[in-house]
């Protein structure tokens, strides 16, 4: 495989360094779908379409990775989701 262009290499290296932990949201039978979409939009800045897609993934597949990054940041995001009553966990990528 030919070497990747320099910029791409840097981007990949940075991704490997930072995207170590995933923030996972789990399905639950109580939280309203529109509420979950709102929280995703408000906390993560997702568009309505992207937030809806992630909410449906949670609803239909039981879970969805809604963010990734350094552990400390993902833990704070997990805390914010908990604060909004969503069942979120942190796991290694």
């Amino acid at each position: 495989m030919p070497p990747a262009p320099r910029d791409r290499q840097f981007e990949d290296t940075e991704t490997l360094t930072t995207a170590t932990w995933n923030l996972v949201v789990w399905n639950d039978p109580v939280n309203l779908m529109d509420y979950v979409v709102y929280v995703f939009r408000r906390l993560f800045g997702y568009s309505k379409a992207d937030a809806t897609r992630l909410m449906l993934e949670v609803h239909q597949q039981g879970r969805s990775v809604v963010a990734s990054g350094p552990r400390e940041r993902v833990e704070m995001q997990c805390f914010e989701l908990h604060r909004h009553g969503l069942w979120a966990t942190v796991e290694r990528t």
Binding site: L32, D34, Y35, V37, Y38, R41, R42, S47, K48
Partner: peptide, 14 residues
């Protein structure tokens, strides 16, 4: 809750 979420959702800048 649903009523409040509806209102708040419309207030998020797109």
């Amino acid at each position: 809750h649903g009523g409040l979420v509806d209102v708040l959702s419309d207030l998020i800048p797109t």
